[in-house]
């Protein structure tokens, strides 16, 4: 199955553009979730979970999500999962994100990249 990565992490764009279809979002974590939702409505399938495991949405501004490159019939479990993720994202206080410096953002990019790579099995 061909894969598409939707991300606001430029490290992922740099490393995987060409190997996969990478859609770079110049925006927030929420913008990535919304872009994924829109794709799922068109029939793409969610391949990685849209939420982090332990790094909460209120802590990190960075997110990469993998979906199928091909479109098919709408996959309702994918849609259910992304909608739930958006509700969960909105629940978290994002106050902390305003104060992140470059070093910390880089660390979040690294974590996001390694979590994505754990799914790519690289």
């Amino acid at each position: 199955m061909k894969k598409m990565i939707i991300t606001n992490n430029d490290w992922v764009l740099k490393k995987y553009n060409g190997k996969f279809t990478v859609v770079y979002i110049d925006g927030t974590f929420k913008d990535v979730l919304l872009a994924v939702r829109d794709k799922l409505h068109l029939g793409h399938e969610l391949l990685t979970h849209p939420l982090g495991s332990s790094v909460k949405p209120g802590e990190t501004p960075i997110k990469s999500i993998m979906i199928s490159d091909e479109k098919n019939k709408i996959n309702f479990s994918s849609v259910y999962m992304i909608e739930n993720a958006i509700i969960t994202y909105d629940k978290f206080n994002k106050e902390k994100l305003k104060f992140l410096d470059d070093k910390r953002i880089e660390d979040f990019k690294l974590i996001d990249l390694t979590v994505l790579e754990s799914a790519l099995n690289i």
Binding site: L46, L47, T48, H49, S53, M81, L116, S118, A119
Partner: peptide, 9 residues
């Protein structure tokens, strides 16, 4: 385990 990839889950 608790993996990221939905197929793993």
């Amino acid at each position: 385990n608790e993996n990221v990839y939905l197929a793993d889950k």
